[in-house]
């Protein structure tokens, strides 16, 4: 089973992606999904996502393959959007299918946690008053911070 990994500007179709993951199968007992959305905090007007074409897809494919090694998945889909997105817009979709619910739920959580810290994406916030700022990584994400001192 090869995970489906896509980075795209276009919206995704949750129902169509779920159907595709189950097509022709009767061995799936659980299909877990996570959809990340743009939240309108502090008067946010839009969120722009930037990525590293090539590396981003490779990095996600690598971690999806790791998820498939840790849990007995029958299907796995990761779609991450890039570009300028308004509040309420879906940003990311993770789908994981397995014979049993625990594997699908755990693998889904693993993938979305990893996407936060291990895939090269950057978010820039635009606010209604014209301010712009790059979202800073959470302190917890800095555990893996590089040390540059020579």
């Amino acid at each position: 089973m090869t995970p489906r990994v896509t980075v795209q500007a276009a919206p995704f179709d949750l129902a169509a992606e779920m159907t595709a993951l189950l097509a022709g199968r009767v061995d799936v007992g659980g299909l877990a999904s996570f959809v990340g959305l743009v939240r309108a905090d502090e008067g946010l007007a839009a969120l722009t996502l930037e990525h590293y074409p090539g590396m981003t897809e490779r990095a996600i494919a690598g971690i999806a393959a790791e998820a498939c090694g840790r849990w007995p998945l029958t299907g796995c889909t990761v779609i991450h959007r890039v570009g300028r997105l308004p509040p309420g817009a879906p940003i990311v979709l993770v789908l994981t299918a397995s014979a049993h619910r625990a594997a699908s739920l755990e693998a889904c959580a693993f993938l979305i946690d990893w996407l936060k810290t291990g895939a090269p994406f950057w978010k820039r916030e635009e606010f209604a008053d014209g301010r712009e700022r790059w979202v800073e990584a959470k302190a917890a994400d800095d555990a893996a911070a590089l040390r540059w001192a020579r």
Binding site: D113, L115, P120, F121, E136, A137, D142, R147
Partner: peptide, 22 residues
């Protein structure tokens, strides 16, 4: 990569802030 990773003339090297995807 980290600060000690070797670099050479044929390499593609990217610099960026800590990632904030998901």
């Amino acid at each position: 990569a980290d600060p000690t990773t070797p670099v050479g003339p044929e390499d593609e090297i990217a610099f960026f802030p800590p990632v904030t995807g998901g």
